[in-house]
Design a protein around this nucleic acid. Sequence first.
DNA 1: TAGTGGTCTAGACCACGGT
DNA 2: CCGTGGTCTAGACCACTAG
Lengths: 235, 235
Amino acid sequence: MLDKSDYIPLYVQLYRKLREQILNGEYKQGEFIPSETEVMKAFQTTRGTVRNAISLLVNDGLVQQVRGKGTLVLLSPLKYSITNFGGFTDYLNSRKEIGYSKVLEKSNVSIDGVEYYKLVRARGVKKEDKIIYLMIDKSLLPVSVFPGLDQYDFEKESLYQVFREKYNIFPKRTEISLRPEIINQQTREILEIDETEQALLKAEGSIFDQNNIEIEKVKILYAPSLDFNIMTEIN
Amino acid sequence: MLDKSDYIPLYVQLYRKLREQILNGEYKQGEFIPSETEVMKAFQTTRGTVRNAISLLVNDGLVQQVRGKGTLVLLSPLKYSITNFGGFTDYLNSRKEIGYSKVLEKSNVSIDGVEYYKLVRARGVKKEDKIIYLMIDKSLLPVSVFPGLDQYDFEKESLYQVFREKYNIFPKRTEISLRPEIINQQTREILEIDETEQALLKAEGSIFDQNNIEIEKVKILYAPSLDFNIMTEIN
DNA sequence: TAGTGGTCTAGACCACGGT
DNA sequence: CCGTGGTCTAGACCACTAG
C-alpha cells in the first residue's frame, strides 16, 4: 500500500490515505478509525510510522485520540475551520467541494526594490447555483521566484497547483498574524456582509517553501460566516 | 536529571527544562540549542524522547528545526505571541514578568440552569511603574466544579494556580474561536486604546481539564498591542 | 567527512476503558 | 481480562549542511 521508494515519507503517505478515507466518509463523525495496531498491519509498517501519520490528523483537527478506546473522527463538515491558510482550492478539494475565484486585480508592483506580481481574488464556493464569496485574498508573488506567472488565468487554475506543477515549488510553512479590520464598502459588497457586522478578521503574513524561501506574501479578509477555530494543548 | 518515577512523562519534563532554559536566555534568539544527540546524552535518555520534547517546543513556536544544522531559537522577547490561552499568569511567569489583575466584576450567574461564578478581570504587566492592561478576561466557572471559589481574591492569586493547588484540576485543552469586535467606550478606557483603533480581537471558547470536563468558559478581549501570531505546517 | 535533523524499525511496558 | 493509545528504548539509514 505504501511506496518505500517514493520520496514522500511513509507517514505522510499514510496520513494522506487516512485523511482521504475520513473526508470520503468511509469513517464518519463519531466513529473510530482502525486501531494503530490494525493500521500498522494493514499497511505493513510499524507503530511509530502510524502514530506520526495520526498525529498529523490530530493537528488538522480531523481526529481525536482517546486512551483505552481508539481514534475518533471529529468532522464538522459544514464548518470551515481555517487553520489552513495557503491552499484554499486544495482545502476545498479535500472536502469534495469546488471553489470559485474571481480576479479583482492583477498587476506588477515593486516594494523595497523587489518586483512582485500582485493578484487580488475573491474566493468562494457554490451553494444552490449561487456563488458565496468567503474571502478576499491579496497575494504578492516575487517575480524572481515565479517568472512568467502572469500568463496563467487564476480564475481557472489553482495558484498552488501551478506552484507545484509548473515551478516545482511546494508551500511548506506559514507565518501569519491575525488582526481585526473595519469593513470597507467594497469588501462589504463583494462578501455580501450584513450591515450588523462592522469588522472582520484579517490574516496577514508570508508563506515559505521547502527551502524556507518566501514564496508569497498574503493578506486575507475572511467573511464573518467563516468560523475561525483553534484548539490548543497545555503542557 | 529526569525523574523516571514521576508521573509526568519524561519528554514533558525535558520539554519544560528546555523551555525554561530558552526563556531564561541561556539560549538566545538565533542561537542553536544543543543537538538532539547531545541532549539525549546529557539527560540519559533516547532520541525519540528528545524529539518528542523538541516537537512541543516547535508547537509553541519557540524553536525551529533546520536539517543538517540544528535547532534554532525563535524568540521575540518583546512580543506576546498568544497561542497560549488559559494561564495568563503562568505565561508571564515563564517569561519572568509579573502580571497584574484588576477585578472588574464578581458575581453569580445562572445559564441554562447551570450555576457559574462570573469573574471579569483586566490583566496586564508593569512597565516603568505603570500598569499596562493587555486584555480583559471574562470567565464563567461552574460552581459544581469549583465549590467555594468565591472566597479567593483573584487580584492576588492566580486562577490557574488555585485550580491546581486547591481543586487538583489541571487545564489540558482549549477550544477557542476568534472574532473581531468593535471596541466599546469602557474597553477603550481600560485598555487605553488609541482612537485610531476601532476593533480588536476577541477569543471565545471553553477550557477542559484532563478528564475532558469543561472547567471554564472564557471571553477575552485583546489589546491591539498584543500580536496574534500563528505558524502552521502544510503536509 | 563529520554532524545534524528526518525517517523507520522492532520491540517493550504502562494506564485506561470496557468485558 | 484484552485491546486501546501513551511512553520509552536502542538501534538503523538517509538527506542535508558545512568545513
